[in-house]
Each structure stands twice: as C-alpha cells, then as structure tokens.
C-alpha cells in the first residue's frame, strides 16, 4: 500500500507545515527550560502572561486593519498617549512632582473611560480619512502616528510621569484570588480576545471586514457599506489601544513620551506570524495570540539564555522573516 503510506506521510508533513510556528515555539521553550530550569517558574509564567497581555490587545486592534487590507502605524503612539494620560490623572495625592497638583483623586473607571473615548476618536479620524478621502491606510496612519506623538509631547512637556496610585498599579501587579499565574492582565486580555473573537466570527460586521479584505469591489457590489465598516474597524482599534495604554502605564509604574514606541511594528509582526495575511481577508484570533506569544516567549527565553539585549533585535528580526516565510510556503504549496 505505497499510496496510503504516501498520503499519511503527506498528512504528517502538512500538519507540521501548518503548525510549524507552534511546534518550534514549544520545542524552543522545552530546550530553554531544560538548560535553565527556572524558566518554568510561576513567577516567569506571570511575567510572560503580563507582557503578552498588553501586546495581544494591541495586536487585536491592528489585526482588524490588516484583515481589511489596511494597516495601522499609529498604534504604538496611541498606546503611548493613553499611558501618559492615565499616569497623569492617576498620580498619588501626596506625590511631589504631580502634574496637576490641584485635582483630587479621580475615580479610576472614569479615567479609563475618558482615555478610551480620546483614543477612539483618533481611530475614527483614521477611519474617516481612509474611507472617505481614500488616502492609503499606510500614509494616513503614518500621519496620525506623528500627530499623536506631537500631542503627547505637548501634553507631557516631555517630562516622565511617576508616583502612580496603588489602586492603579495594582491592576498590573495583582492576581485573581492572589494566584500568581492568574494575573488580572491575563484576564483582561482574555476578555478582549473573546469579545474580538465574537466580533470577527459571529457578527455581520466581522463578516463584512473579511469581505472587504477579500475583495473590496465585490463587497461594494454586494451592497456592503464599506465606508462605515472601515470606520468601525479603525475606531475599534483605537478603543483597544486605549485599554492597552492604560494597562501599560500601570504595568510600567510610570511613563514617558517614549511609551509604546515601535509597538505597532511588533503588533503587525505578531499578527503576520500568527497567519494574518497582509493581502487581506485572512486571520484568526487564535493565530494572533500564538504570534504575539512567540515574540514574547522569544524575548524572555533570550533573557534567560543570557543573550545580550542588543543581539535580541537581530534574532527577533530573523524570526519575523522566517516565520512568515514558512507561512507563505503553506499557501504556495496549495497552488
């Protein structure tokens, strides 16, 4: 039965190809774990989950733009502005370097809501420019990126912001029932992930998003309101950046204008590694999670292996190219 052998061999090969990124990920973790046993510690697990949580939420925002054949370069700066806003309004009352010494303690939920509104407005702005003025998303969001950075500089006066309230930083350091490997950040990211999964798979908006990415002209012929859909996509992205920035500030315990710098590129890389096609129309939430996780795991693994920080960038770059190349082969083989 040579034929059957061949087909089962094909099946194994296909399985390996389709899951190459995950397999490499698991293999690499095991290898690092064997060499550095503390890699599998509870503390490290929490660290990994917290790091991944913030990046995952940003990647969720960027993914909608990528799936609809756009992109969002303003993500990182939007996250940075959100972090600066959060830190500014959530400083301790007794902190001497307070930016606004005269305002008292504002309810933390109000601050979060305010930040979400502000950052979402930038998303709506992106969406309107892209949908109505037909400026390519790359250029639109490049412009917005610079605008947001400028606003952030003006707002903070380029001063770092510290002395954050304990109820704010607790969001990042705390855990569910005090169980170390169940940090709040993980829970929040999981909730965001679930809502986005629901949106992408269970709602008409999600279907329209994939349709626009798959074939915008056909979407228009089918009567889909492509403009409204795009605006919602970029607005949702802004909303997620707001949440992510809020969490980033809490996690860092203080911020500056450099917060979030370059995060959009990591998010795009994570999405792409996770199988989101830059040609549009393709991408899953589970893939995005894997993509982001690969990146964060890689970073932590390199720390454990004692790789000098400067070298980690070279490795990260190589991983992006390799992972996507493997992914492309997967599609090329089908043609």
């Amino acid at each position: 039965m040579p034929k059957q052998n061949e087909s089962s061999k094909d099946a194994v090969l296909n399985f390996l190809m389709n899951n190459a990124v995950i397999i490499l990920l698991v293999a690499a973790s095991i290898a690092v774990g064997i060499m550095r046993p503390t890699f599998f510690s509870v503390y490290n697990a929490k660290n990994l989950i917290s790091n991944t949580a913030v990046r995952f939420i940003i990647a969720l925002g960027v993914s909608g733009c990528l799936i609809s054949k756009g992109t969002d370069l303003s993500a990182g700066r939007a996250v940075g502005l959100a972090a600066c806003l959060a830190a500014t309004f959530l400083q301790r009352a007794d902190y001497t370097g307070k930016v606004y010494p005269n305002i008292g303690d504002i309810n933390i939920a109000v601050v979060l809501l305010g930040i979400i509104v502000v950052i979402t407005i930038f998303g709506v702005f992106n969406g309107i420019i892209i949908a109505y003025l037909k400026v390519p998303p790359f250029i639109t969001t490049l412009g917005t990126q610079t605008i947001i950075y400028g606003i952030c500089l003006v707002f903070t006066g380029a001063q770092p912001i510290g002395g954050l309230r304990a109820d704010y930083t607790d969001i990042a350091s705390g855990s569910i029932f005090g169980v170390t490997y169940l940090p709040y950040l993980g829970l929040i990211a999981a909730i965001c992930g679930f809502i986005m999964w629901f949106t992408y798979n269970k709602t008409s908006h999600g279907k329209y998003m994939y349709a626009i990415g798959g074939n915008e002209s056909a979407a228009e012929v089918s009567g889909i309101n492509t403009k409204a859909t795009k605006i919602i996509i970029y607005a949702t992205a802004g909303l997620l950046y707001g949440i992510a920035g809020f969490l980033l500030g809490a996690k860092a315990g203080g911020t500056s204008v450099n917060a979030g710098f370059g995060y959009e590129l990591e998010a795009i890389a994570g999405c792409t590694i996770g199988g989101v096609s830059t040609n549009g129309g393709v991408g899953r939430i589970s893939g995005i999670l894997v993509g982001v996780l690969v990146f964060e795991l890689l970073k932590i693994a390199m720390v454990f292996m004692g790789v000098e920080p400067s070298y980690t960038y070279i490795v990260q770059g190589l991983v992006i190219v390799t992972a996507v190349a493997i992914d492309m082969r997967k599609y090329a083989a089908k043609k």
Partner: peptide, 16 residues
C-alpha cells in the same frame, strides 16, 4: 474582480 471573495468560504460567499 468584482464577484467572488476568493479567500473566503463558499458559505461566507453565499451569505455575505
């Protein structure tokens, strides 16, 4: 060019 959504499933193409 203006008909199918190539990367989407038959089901999605029917229902869109």
């Amino acid at each position: 060019q203006t008909g199918i959504f190539g990367v989407l499933s038959v089901a999605d193409n029917v229902a869109v």
